[in-house]
Design a protein around this nucleic acid. Structure first.
Lengths: 247, 247
DNA sequence: TAGATTTGTCTATTGCTCTATACAACCGAA
DNA sequence: TTCGGTTGTATAGAGCAATAGACAAATCTA
């Protein structure tokens, strides 16, 4: 009783079938090709489409329920919880909150950790400081509508911006914090984009499941005199976010 | 006799340990944190670092040898075959060949497939055509130094650019082909970036292994009058490429 | 209420993954 | 040549992944 799965999964590839199925369901939902009307096809149908056993599909669905992507109701069906990907604009004036204003209701940036440390090499280069000069390192978690969107680590010159972290906690915004230090405006100088598998800290912080993908941006912001004021590395959950670039 | 692996792998996650190890080794090489001097640490050392059995490391290395990332020599050690990621610049004047000029010796774009088809909805919208208007669809494979860097699908207005594919085959370049039709220059209007697991066609075309990641860009190019002339979706191998954005 | 549809649970079997141990083959240096 | 370090091969056992079949529980419709 073998099925005629239109597009077979890769076996003995090091990735469990149930995880491959989960990835394809998640992708299908983002694309809109799956979950017509907010409802997923029955398990039996999916197992035939993917050419795997029903239990394998169940394992995939179970993982997606855990992630919050799906919701299963006995006797009724399985339903889609999430929506389209957020479009995060990268421009000369990239700011977290304003960028997502039209797409989400609630946005928040939480401070996870703050330390003052000697600048690592790449940070010193980016901020044009002496290697080892004191810098603030702020690790933040950005949420939109209750979902963990991104995890960022930013560095700031501790000499120029004393007590930056305290101001940030008070204002809850990088932009507002800069304003306190007399930097009324700033511009994105450069952005580097790459993608990779989520590491242990991504999984924990962004509440992802193993094998998930993160979009990584490494960016430098300048003040209006062209002096670098912020160096940051941000990890976006690739299932929730896409980046838009207007050139 | 358990090890003190500094940063343990995720078990029962649906991704085999050897594949997780392979992903981390590949990443370590891209980062430059692994493979100091072109040579990988011995299998025993790696197995202790990752907190897994030596055979698990061997499975990972075996996969990376298959991919062409590593080369193992009995009695001597395991060596790195590949280099740092290519930086692919996205600017108002994004072109494949010139963008990678300083980083690679040989660059080539191969035409995989060409059809004239009625424009799908999103293509028609992007090119400002009537839905169903005839368009060229060109599927291309870009290589640099013999490695498959990206797979692109581009659409062009068939009415404005009759026989575009033939010209492309002759010139081997989008830019040169446009020139033949009197479009001496063009600019990137917008770029959308996302990341996902490679699908079956990515695996085949880009010679990736299952679980690999692709960076996906969806872009529109305009002529100097601001009229859209090209709509494209490009899949980059995330292990080989990162995108740079100067704003 | 009866029946069809759908998700949830259970048991069993097969094959692959990971571990553990041992030893062979090969290389380079003393 | 000898020896330490490294990759390659073999074998066996424990645990996870995937399949299969059967049935329970919940929901909806006729």
């Amino acid at each position: 009783m073998e099925q005629t799965g239109e597009d077979l999964m890769e076996r003995r590839s090091g990735v469990a079938l149930w995880r491959q199925v989960a990835d394809r369901i998640r992708l299908g939902i983002s694309n809109g090709t799956l979950g017509e009307g907010g409802r997923l096809p029955p398990e039996i149908t999916l197992s035939q489409q993917f050419g795997v056993n029903r239990h394998t599909v169940r394992a995939a669905i179970s993982a997606l329920v855990q992630e919050g992507v799906l919701r299963a109701e006995q006797g009724r069906g399985t339903f889609v919880e999430s929506r389209k990907r957020l479009a995060y604009p990268i421009t000369t004036r990239t700011r977290f909150s304003t960028g997502l204003k039209d797409q989400t209701r609630a946005r928040r940036v939480n401070l996870l950790r703050h330390v003052v440390e000697p600048a690592p090499t790449r940070v010193a280069e980016a901020l044009q400081l002496e290697p080892g000069a004191p810098v603030h390192r702020l690790e933040t978690l950005s949420e939109a509508d209750g979902r963990c969107v991104s995890r960022g680590t930013s560095w700031f010159d501790a000499t120029r911006f004393p007590g930056f972290a305290d101001v940030f906690v008070e204002t809850g915004s990088i932009t507002a914090s800069f304003a306190r230090f007399g930097v009324d405006d700033y511009v994105r100088r450069s952005t580097l984009v790459s993608a990779r598998h989520a590491d242990a800290e991504d999984l924990d912080t962004l509440k992802l499941s193993p094998g998930a993908i993160v979009l990584v941006t490494i960016a430098i912001n300048d003040d209006l005199d062209g002096r670098p004021i912020q160096f940051s590395e941000t990890h976006f959950s690739a299932d929730l976010v896409e980046l838009t670039i207007e050139t």
